[in-house]
Design a protein around this nucleic acid. Structure first.
Length: 571
RNA sequence: GCGCCUGUAGCUCAGCUGGAUAGAGCAACGGACUUCUAAUCCGUAGGCCAGGGGUUCGAAUCCCUUCAGGCGCGCCA
C-alpha cells in the first residue's frame, strides 16, 4: 500500500519513503496479530521529509491517525510501531517518537551521499519517471480567438499549459498539446465586418466602423498589407463574398502571427484544431443527433435545448438556435467528443476564469455523451490585471488598447515572462506591474536560478585546467562519502526530491511548484558555493564536489527547461 | 440573488490531501569579495494566517457564517 503523497517507488526519495511505509504497515499488522493494538484498516498516513532537520530524515503521522480507532494515545501507538518495526527493511540509525506522536526516522550517516550516487548514475535525464507510462493526456491551452493579438491572459495560459505538458511528459505520460482555433461563429462575422470596414475606409470610402467591431490597430494593418498586395480588387465585388475573402486572408494572417508569437514564447503545438472543420465535417450535427438519440434534448421556442439539469447543472442550455445555427456550446461538445475519440485518457483545458460558467456545462455534456465527466479537467486561471504608472491598465479588444504578448516578450524577455507567469498558482489573481517588469527585471527570481547555473558552468570550465580526472564522474568513480558538509547534504537532499516533485506537480496539475523548486535548489547551491570551495588542493574532494555541482547544473537546467526557460552558461 | 476564485510579514506570493516553532523573494537594518561569477552568501527585524463560530488530540488548512476584492450567471464565445 503506497499512498500518492509518498511519491513513486521508482524514485530516489520515493522508494525510501515506500520502504518506511511498508515497515510501518508490517509493524502494525504484526502488533495487530499479537493483540497489541486493534484497528480495521491502516489509515492513509504519510511519510514525509520534515521541514525541520532535527526531526529526522523522514517522519510519519501514522500513530496519530490511529489514535481514535485504536483507543490508545498516539505516543503509545508510536511505541508499538517502533517495537515491531522491521529494522532490516532499510539501514536506520535511529527511530524516535516526538511531539504529539510523530515517529521520526534517521537513516544511516551516508544515505544522502548514497542518494547522490544514484542520481549521478541517472545523469542527464534526471527527473524523468515512468509513472504515466501508457496513459495519453491532451493539454489544450491558449486557443485564443484568431481575431486579434495575444494578450496577457493568453500569455499566462501559454506558460501554464506548456509547463504542465512538459511536467506530464517528464512523468512519463504521452502528451499532446493542442490549440483550438475558434474560426467559426459570431466573432468571425464581426471580424469580417471589421476587416471590410477598414478595407473600404482605407480605399477612401466614407463608411462607419461597426460599433461592436474589433478596433485594434492590427486589423487596419492587416488590410493595409492586403491593399499593398492586391490593391482594390475586392472593392467592387459582392459584399458577402468580399467579407469571406477578407476573413480568409485575415484569419491566415492572424493565425500565422499567433503561431509566430507563441514560438517566440517557446511554445510549439502538436495539433492546431479548427472549429470550422467540425461544422464542415458534420461532426457538430452528428453530436446533436447523438444527444437527441440519447433523449437528452427537447425543443422550446423553436430552439433545441440540452437538458443539462438532468446532469446536475443549474439550467438547460441551447444547442441549436431558433435560426438553425448550432451554438458554440454544441460545437464544443463535438470538439470534446472528438478528443475522446482520439483516445485520450485525460483531457485538460486551461481556461480564463471568465469561462468558468462553461466548465460545469461541458462536464455535464460529457456525461450526457456517455463519458466519465472526470476525464475532462479544466484549470481555471484567474485573470491577469495589468498595472502601469500605478494604475490598472485595462485590456480591451474593443478599444484596441492592450499589451500584447509580443510586446511583453520584447520588453521583458521570454525567460523572465514565462517564469513570472508559471511562478503563480493559477488560482491567484495576478497583478502584473509593467513598469516593474520592464525596469527592474533583474529582480526577477529567474535570474537567481539562471545565475546558479551559470556559476556552475564557470566552475566546470575552470576545472578543466586543474588536472582532475573528470571522466571519473561519468564513470561513477568518485568518493561519495567525501560529501559531508551540511550545505552539501542539504543540496543533495533537495536534488534527490526532484523526480518526486515533478510527479507531484504533474499529478496535481500545479506547475507553479516547479518554479518554487528550482529557486530552492538554486538557493541550496548558492549556499553550498558560499561554504565549500569546489576546486582546491584536495583533488579527491574537488572531484566529488565537482560532481555535485555538475549534477546540480543538470537538475537546474532540466527544471528550467520544464518551464521553457533557458539555462545560460554565462551571465 | 446564485455560483467559482481570492483575502497569510510594509509589498508580491508559497504553504491548504488537517500535524511539530506559519515560509520565500522584494523593501528595511547589520555583516561578508586578494581565492571557482557579490546577479551571491550570513545575520536582525517584521504575523490575532480578513472577522466570528464549529469539528478534534491538533486548524492558515475542513464545515458554517459575516465582511472585502475579482470573475461569471446570453438563442455571445
Amino acid at each position: 500500500m503506497i499512498f500518492p503523497s509518498q511519491g513513486s517507488l521508482s524514485t530516489i526519495i520515493g522508494k525510501r519513503k515506500a520502504l518506511i511505509a511498508r515497515g510501518i504497515i508490517e509493524a502494525l499488522e504484526r502488533a495487530k496479530a499479537a493483540g497489541e493494538i486493534h484497528y480495521a484498516l491502516v489509515p492513509e498516513f504519510v511519510v514525509e521529509i520534515p521541514r525541520e532537520l532535527s526531526h529526522g530524515d523522514f517522519a510519519t503521522n501514522a500513530a496519530m491517525l490511529l489514535a481514535r480507532e485504536a483507543k490508545k494515545s498516539p505516543r503509545d501507538i508510536a511505541k508499538i510501531i517502533l517495537k515491531n518495526f522491521p529494522q532490516q527493511i532499510l539501514p536506520l540509525k535511529e527511530i524516535e517518537i516526538a511531539g504529539p506522536g510523530f515517529i521520526n526516522f534517521r537513516l544511516g550517516d551516508n544515505w544522502l551521499p548514497q542518494c547522490f550516487g544514484e542520481i549521478l548514475a541517472i545523469g542527464e535525464n534526471f527527473g524523468c519517471s515512468e509513472i504515466g507510462r501508457g496513459k495519453k493526456i491532451q493539454v489544450e491551452f491558449v486557443s485564443a480567438n484568431p481575431t486579434g493579438e495575444l494578450h496577457m491572459g493568453n500569455a499566462r495560459g501559454a506558460a501554464i499549459g506548456d509547463t504542465l505538458a512538459s511536467l506530464l511528459k517528464a512523468a512519463g505520460y504521452l502528451v499532446e498539446k493542442e490549440f483550438y482555433i475558434n474560426d467559426a461563429g459570431n466573432q468571425i462575422e464581426k471580424f469580417g465586418f471589421s476587416l471590410e470596414a477598414r478595407y473600404l475606409q482605407e480605399l477612401g470610402e466614407d463608411i462607419p466602423f461597426p460599433e461592436d467591431g474589433y478596433h485594434g490597430e492590427d486589423i487596419l494593418k492587416t488590410m493595409k498589407d492586403l491593399i499593398e498586395r492586391d490593391g482594390d480588387k475586392y472593392k467592387n465585388i459582392d459584399s458577402a463574398l468580399r467579407r469571406e475573402l477578407l476573413t480568409q486572408y485575415g484569419l491566415e494572417k492572424k493565425l500565422a502571427s499567433i503561431r509566430e508569437t507563441l514560438a517566440l514564447f517557446g511554445v510549439e503545438y502538436d495539433v492546431w484544431f479548427s472549429e470550422q472543420s467540425l461544422h464542415d465535417s458534420g461532426a457538430v450535427a452528428q453530436t446533436v443527433k447523438a444527444l437527441e438519440e440519447k433523449g437528452c434534448v427537447y425543443t422550446k421556442e423553436d430552439a433545441l435545448w440540452l437538458a443539462c439539469t438532468g446532469f446536475g447543472e443549474e439550467k438547460d442550455e441551447v444547442l441549436v438556435r431558433a435560426n438553425g445555427v448550432p451554438t458554440y456550446y454544441a460545437a464544443d461538445i463535438a470538439y470534446h467528443d472528438n478528443k475522446f475519440k482520439r483516445g485520450f485518457d485525460q483531457v485538460i483545458n486551461i481556461w480564463g476564469a471568465d469561462h468558468h460558467g462553461h466548465v460545469a456545462r461541458m462536464k455535464g455534456a460529457m456525461e450526457a455523451m456517455g463519458y466519465n465527466r472526470d476525464r475532462l479537467h479544466v484549470i481555471l486561471m484567474q485573470l491577469v490585471r495589468l498595472y502601469r504608472g500605478g494604475e490598472i491598465f485595462r485590456m480591451s479588444k474593443r478599444t484596441g488598447t492592450y499589451i500584447t504578448l509580443a510586446e511583453l516578450i520584447e520588453d521583458v524577455g521570454k525567460d523572465a515572462a514565462r517564469f513570472f507567469f508559471v511562478m503563480r498558482s493559477p488560482d491567484s489573481q495576478m497583478d502584473f506591474d509593467l513598469d516593474l517588469a520592464v525596469s527592474q527585471s533583474a529582480d526577477n527570481p529567474v535570474y537567481y536560478v539562471q545565475y546558479a547555473h551559470a556559476r556552475i558552468c564557470s566552475i566546470l570550465e575552470a576545472a578543466k585546467g586543474e588536472g582532475l580526472d573528470i571522466a571519473a564522474i561519468n564513470k561513477g568513480e568518485i568518493k561519495l562519502n567525501r560529501l559531508e558538509h551540511p550545505s552539501e547534504l542539504a543540496l543533495i537532499r533537495k536534488m534527490a526530491d526532484f523526480p518526486d516533485e515533478i510527479i507531484y506537480s504533474a499529478h496535481h496539475y500545479e506547475p507553479h511548484r516547479i518554479a518554487a523548486y528550482v529557486q530552492e535548489l538554486a538557493s541550496g547551491f548558492h549556499n553550498f558555493y558560499a561554504h565549500c570551495r569546489v576546486l582546491g588542493e584536495d583533488k579527491e574532494l574537488s572531484l566529488s564536489r565537482l560532481a555535485l555541482a555538475k549534477m546540480t547544473a543538470i537538475t537546474l537546467k532540466n527544471g528550467l527547461n520544464l518551464m521553457g526557460v533557458n539555462a545560460p552558461e554565462k551571465m
